[in-house]
């Protein structure tokens, strides 16, 4: 299970059975060109990066909507 903090919603969600950033984005129906994915060390992650179970990441949506 991967723990995901979503911005700007500021809410925690979980993604089950995901082994990579790409998998988490698919599970949450997000696109890689519309979000920043940030790890606990405040580093950006590309979609191919593997994630260990229990990892916490932040996903920041970047599309301006108005």
């Amino acid at each position: 299970m991967i723990h995901v903090f979503l911005e700007p919603e500021t809410e925690w969600v979980t993604a089950q059975k995901c082994k990579s950033v790409h998998g988490v984005l698919n599970r949450l129906q997000l696109k890689a060109d519309q979000v920043l994915v940030i790890d606990e060390k405040d580093c950006l992650l590309t979609p191919d990066r593997l994630l260990s179970p229990g990892t916490k990441i932040k996903i920041r949506k970047v599309g301006s909507r108005g």
Binding site: E7, P8, R60, K61, V62, S64, R65, G66
Partner: peptide, 10 residues
């Protein structure tokens, strides 16, 4: 990073 409250449905 917060969207404008009036922009919904633009």
């Amino acid at each position: 990073m917060y969207p404008c409250p009036y922009s919904h449905g633009a």
